[in-house]
Structure formats: C-alpha cells, structure tokens
Amino acid sequence: MLRKIAKARVWVAAAAALTILFAFPAQAAAMHIMEGMLPTKWCIFWAALYIPFFARGIYVISKKCAGDGHMKLLLAMSAAYCFILSALKLPSVTGSSSHPTGTGLGAVLFGPSAMSVLGLIVLAFQALLLAHGGLSTLGANAISMAVVGPFAGYGVYLLLGRMNVKKSICVFAAAFTADLVTYVVTSFQLGLAFQTAEMGLAATTVKFLGVFAVTQIPLAIAEGLLTVVIFNTLKLLSPAERSLA
C-alpha cells in the first residue's frame, strides 16, 4: 500500500515537471547575459567576485600540468569540448533554442578551479566575435558558467562517488548539474539586479528561471549523456599508470 502511494507520488511529480516544461511555450533564449543588460554596479560586483577564482584556476592548472604532456593534452581537450558544446544551439521542448556549457567534463578531470579559466576563454571568444554574452557582463557570466556551475557539478560528482555510485552515472550527474546550475545562477543574477519594490528577489528570479532554466533541462540531459561518452573514451585511452580518477 505504502509502496503504491510512493509510486503514485513519483508519477504526480513527473506529471508536474512535464506541465512546467510545457507551460512556457515559445519562450526563447537561454543563454548568457547580453552586453549592457546588467546594471553597472552588478557588473563590477560579479567581476570582482570572479577575479580570485581566476587566479586560483591559473595556479591549479600550472601545478597540475607542470611538465606533464598528457595532462596538458587533456586540458586542451576539455577546453575544446567546451568550445564545441557552446557553439551548438539545440532546440528544446519550450520551442526555443539554447546551448549546453560543456564545463562538466573539465570539472571532473581537473577539478572545478581549472574550469574557472577555461570557461572564461569560451565566454571571451563568444563576447568578442559573436556578440553573444558581453564584455561588461563577462564577470557575471564567468561566475555562473565558469565558477558556480563547475563547482556544483564537481560537488555532485564527489558526493555520488562517495556513495559508490557507478562512475558513468557520477559523470552524467556532474555534467547535468554543471549545465543546469549555470543557468539557474544566471536567472538569480538577473533577478537580483532587477528586483523591484512590488516584486521581490524570489519573484523576479522565478520569472527569469522560466526563460533560462526550463529550456535548459533537456539540453542538460543531452550534455550529461555526451559527457559520459567522451569521459569513457578518455578513460579507455589513457595510459594505465595515469588512469583517470
């Protein structure tokens, strides 16, 4: 009996989740914050917050890769993976397109700090050449995609690893989390900057979540699956004495 109720609950939850997914028809765009769309003080705030993570990332990378050709290759490949995934704008069930972030792979292989640097390279490329994201919002976008996303993904990876969950599932969960959390943070950043007297932080954040995060859910699942494929390939090919954690 209890089991039946539990089962019913799962179905209700799934139905609710689907309803939410389809309740936002034809809402476009789930990407980075555009140039000039964040008030100046917030641009400065997020940029200042990002700088220490960047410095730590440089330190971690130089330590992990010092004189180690194999690690350097893996690092370049992690950055390349980010490049590929953030160029692919995929259609989503909300009737709009968005792109995955690809930061989960590098976070799992090198730890989240390394991604703080690699993520910035991708963001700068898109801001300078594609008018996608922006230089004024670079700090805010770096905090979401290159810091909080990878840290959240890595946290989930460690947690599941400690619970003896299968490696592939840990990697999937890490990539899924890193992707989705990136856009949750983006929504929070916009909600924080544009909260008004009548609409509090929670209300504005939820509005932006409707635009950014919902579109991202299926894409995050796709990114998770793809990251498992790449991770397992790298694991299979890495020399035995350098087996990936």
Partner: peptide, 21 residues
C-alpha cells in the same frame, strides 16, 4: 533528445535570441 522538440512543437522557429530575457 535534440530532435524530438522539432516534431513536438510545430509553430516555433526555435529562436535562440537572448532577446526574450
């Protein structure tokens, strides 16, 4: 996962404009 939406939702251009935000 990435092709199902194309069939599921017919009347959308899947615009990727960040303009909605």
């Amino acid at each position: 996962i990435s092709t199902i939406p194309l069939f599921l939702i017919q009347d959308s251009e899947f615009g990727g404009t960040d303009g909605v935000a």
